[in-house]
Simulated scan of single mutants.
Amino acid sequence: MASTSNPDTHESPQKSVYKDPDDGRQRFLLELEFVQCLANPTYIHYLAQNRYFEDEAFIGYLKYLQYWQRPEYIKFIMYPHCLFFLELLQNPTFRNAMAHPANKEVAHRQQFYFWKNYRNNRLKHILPRPLPEPATAPSSAPPASLPSSVAPPAAPPLAPTPVTAAALSPMQYAIPPGSGLAKTDPRNASVDRRKRNRKDG
């Protein structure tokens, strides 16, 4: 007896592949925004405090997001520190440490120092240094006679000698005793006032 089964039931149903209605634009923007949020140590601290780093699916998502380090995606990143923190978040020790407020403050402080000093330190090595000027020996011959309307150039100022530099020190301006000028040291003003009050009393 032949089986009268429907031939459609033997065919394997085709798997429906999900396709973004906007060709992935919305997903691209959401992932870009999330990755760039990782540039903020306070946000990473928030994720650690709310135990996102204990979820294996979230850890897998952080690994997946490393595609932003590829050249075709990295050009969209405006805050490059997010990629540095994304790399650190692959380490479970760092994820656990960021749950503590003190570690969050350390990361934030180091990030600030990087922003403050990196450009200046980098420019020291990038910018070309000026070539030293050749030293020319002064000629002993007198200059040619100048027209009466042109004044000779003024001599350059002399570099301060150690004695001159010591004379310009603020410590040299101490008021000599018996000069009649009162010191305006705020630390001594309250002491003098107390002495006067005792004498008046």
Rank of each mutant, 00 (worst) to 15 (best):
L32K: 10
P128L: 09
Y52D: 03
P92K: 03
N121Y: 05
H45C: 09
C37W: 04
L32T: 03
I77V: 08
L89P: 00
F28L: 11
L83N: 03
E105V: 04
Y79S: 05
Q111S: 15
E87F: 06
A97I: 08
F94A: 02
E105L: 08
L86R: 00
K75D: 03
Y52A: 09
P138C: 04
N50S: 13
G60E: 14
P132W: 01
Y73E: 02
F34L: 12
K63E: 11
I74V: 10
N103M: 06
Q110D: 10
R129W: 07
I74K: 09
K124S: 09
F34Q: 05
R51T: 08
S145P: 10
Q49E: 09
K104N: 06
Y79C: 00
F85H: 10
L38Y: 01
F112A: 08
I44R: 01
E105P: 00
R109A: 13
Y61G: 00
Y118P: 00
H125K: 15
E54G: 06
R109T: 12
H108I: 07
R129T: 14
F85L: 02
A135P: 01
L47R: 02
T93I: 09
H108C: 07
N96A: 15
S140A: 13
T136L: 15
H125D: 15
S139A: 12
I44N: 00
P132T: 05
I59W: 00
L89E: 00
K75S: 05
E54F: 05
F76R: 05
L123D: 15
R119Q: 15
N50I: 01
S149Y: 13
F114C: 09
R51F: 08
